[in-house]
């Protein structure tokens, strides 16, 4: 079962990974976006890490809700409300349980992904974070590693697509041939989850 400590390790692990990959995210965002994705997410997840040190988060839901709130208020770009909505909806779906199963987390993230798709109006294949998040949340019902691989594959598979949502859609056909930055950061979120599960004392169910 996954307790609040597991979720804190996941989110601080995600913050570390985003920090390491911030330059790569920004360079992916340069040809098709406004070259701020890495900077914005790094700012948001730094605030997440700080908030987790300062505030009590007794349940998995409390961790995700706090982190989502930080992202909404600190990122400054569209990824803030989108990732914020993902985490807050997933947090709400987990209720007040002190521990949750991987399957419950998969279902909660599935609800979060639906809320993100509704907020941004994006469908699979639009070359957005949904292309990594949707298959990853589904694969999480199988295993953490399957979710990581599905997210990574989903991100890689955005390269030949033409963007139909977000800032990249303004460049039309020129978005073809570039991996989507949002799908790439979504894959980092699931990579951090798989690493937390693989490394974690008192948190993994595998």
């Amino acid at each position: 079962m996954l307790d609040a400590a597991f979720f804190r390790r996941w989110m601080t692990g995600a913050a570390a990974l985003i920090s390491r990959e911030a330059d790569r995210l920004t360079s992916l965002d340069s040809p098709i976006g406004d070259a701020d994705h890495g900077t914005n997410l790094h700012r948001g997840f730094s605030a997440v890490a700080t908030a987790l040190e300062q505030e009590e988060t007794p349940t998995p839901s409390a961790v995700l809700t706090l982190c989502g709130r930080q992202l909404i208020s600190t990122v400054g770009g569209a990824s803030g409300p989108l990732y914020g909505t993902l985490l807050r909806r997933a947090g709400k779906a987990l209720g007040e349980a002190p521990e949750v199963s991987r399957e419950e987390l998969a279902a909660a993230l599935g609800a979060g992904v639906q809320a993100v798709a509704a907020l941004g109006g994006a469908a699979p294949g639009d070359k957005t974070m949904i292309d990594a998040l949707a298959p990853a949340a589904e694969a999480l019902a199988t295993s953490f590693e399957a979710a990581r691989e599905a997210a990574e594959q989903g991100a890689v598979d955005t390269t030949p697509l033409q963007a139909r949502k977000g800032r990249a859609s303004y460049v039309g056909e020129r978005s073809i041939g570039h991996q989507d930055p949002g799908a790439t950061s979504s894959a980092l979120l699931f990579a951090a989850l798989a690493e937390t599960a693989a490394g974690g004392e008192g948190g993994s169910d595998e």
Binding site: G68, R69, I72, G76, G77, A78, S79, G80, P81, L82, G84, T85, R88, R89, A115, L119, G120, G166, R167
Partner: peptide
């Protein structure tokens, strides 16, 4: 545009 719209919608829906 973009994050301006999404942030307002998220504040209304989530906060």
């Amino acid at each position: 545009l973009g994050s301006a719209v999404l942030t307002v919608k998220t504040l209304l829906a989530e906060e």
